[in-house]
């Protein structure tokens, strides 16, 4: 019985992924690229090599952390699509502050403070959309998107202006020495961001399922009128859900600066939020399901990156696949509801 539910839950996203790969293959074929070779290289380089697997596991961390926030906010029925901007602000907070905090304190305090800074940076960037949404019901999709572009320009200003390390070189913040970055998980070359990501997403899952706040968020997401009827303070809950999701996006930024980049560079915009949106939908906002999907998405990103060199297929192909997965996910949701796909859910 329990197994049946799991199988049923897996089939939908699986179908969406296969359909996306199929349509993606057709696109490749029509623009004159060899789909078989592309997919072969993609899987070989992304999953078949030690490097591919390590890099994929590393890249999971930001996806997991952003997804943790998106699960909460999407489940509360609020569409924060400006995760990218919140990510960048969190990253630049850490990139700017880390060099100042290096000396003196214990490493635990240092990492804790920086994580907090990243979180606060991301949360700060969603304060305006959150207030406008809670107070005046101004559509958060538009406002978070606008804030995304503001963040892009604001971080560009900071990294070229006040926070620039060496004005004569490529604009970036002061490099954090390797010794001051996130430590590796023992016996691996993967920094502990992955553990943080896993912990955060599992936490978010049980937070939504087992706590009174999670209950309030779900109630709001299912039906705003019912939430009001049940005495939920809608404004407060809206703002908190949005702050959490912004904060997690910022924390992901902190992770990337402290774990991988070491500094905030101009023009750097990895666009994790674009991937995280299809990802959490495919996971049906379920934190446990996010984990394998996050691996799959980061494998796609890494495989795509390696493949772009090997098979000469631009890395943007991966973004096309992700978009197709999101679209086909919508289709499978409908078909499962109608009982046209496998069976009714």
């Amino acid at each position: 019985m329990k197994l049946g539910i799991v199988v049923k839950a897996v089939l939908g996203p699986l179908f969406a992924i296969l359909a996306a790969l199929l349509v993606g293959g057709l696109i490749l074929f029509f623009i004159g690229l060899n789909p078989f070779r592309t997919y072969f290289e993609l899987f070989k380089l992304g999953m078949g090599t030690h490097l591919g697997i390590t890099e994929s596991l590393k890249k999971m961390a930001p996806l997991l952390i952003i997804s943790a926030g998106l699960i909460i906010v999407f489940k509360a029925g609020i569409w924060n699509i400006g995760g990218n901007g919140q990510f960048l602000i969190g990253a630049i907070f850490v990139g700017g502050l880390a060099p100042l905090l290096i000396n003196g304190s214990s490493p635990y305090l240092y990492f804790f403070l920086l994580a907090l800074m990243g979180f606060l940076g991301g949360a700060l960037w969603i304060v305006i959309p959150a207030i406008l949404k809670a107070k005046y019901e101004i559509n958060e999709i538009i406002v978070t998107m606008m804030m995304d572009f503001v963040a892009l320009n604001f971080t560009a200003f900071l990294v070229r202006g006040p926070l620039i390390a060496h004005p004569e070189y490529f604009p970036q913040t002061r490099l954090i020495p390797v010794g001051q970055r996130l430590p590796f998980i023992p016996f691996t070359r993967i920094h502990i961001g992955l553990i943080v990501g896993l912990a955060v997403v599992i936490l978010a899952h049980y937070f939504m399922k087992k706590t009174t706040w999670g209950y309030e968020f779900r109630l709001l997401g299912e039906n705003k009128k019912a939430a009001q009827y049940a005495g939920v303070n809608i404004k407060k809950v809206t703002i908190i859900a949005m702050l959490i999701s912004g904060g997690f996006a910022g924390l992901a930024g902190a992770n990337d600066i402290l774990g991988i980049k070491g500094a905030f560079q101009a023009e750097w915009n990895p666009g994790y939020a674009f991937s995280a949106i299809p990802l959490v939908f495919l996971a049906r906002f379920n934190g446990i399901a996010v984990i394998p999907l996050a691996y799959f998405f980061s494998f796609l990103a890494i495989g795509g990156e390696f493949m772009s060199r090997a098979a000469n297929v631009p890395v943007f192909f991966v973004q096309v696949l992700e978009a197709l997965m999101l679209i086909f996910f919508g289709v499978t949701e409908y078909m499962q509801k109608k009982g046209k796909l496998f069976w009714k859910s």
Partner: peptide, 23 residues
């Protein structure tokens, strides 16, 4: 408006029954 305000269709009966007492 029992369908849209008095309860949530995608919640279980038990979850609907604690609208006012979950805390």
């Amino acid at each position: 408006d029992r369908m849209k305000e008095g309860c949530v269709g995608n919640f279980s009966l038990a979850e609907n029954a604690i609208f006012r007492s979950y805390k």
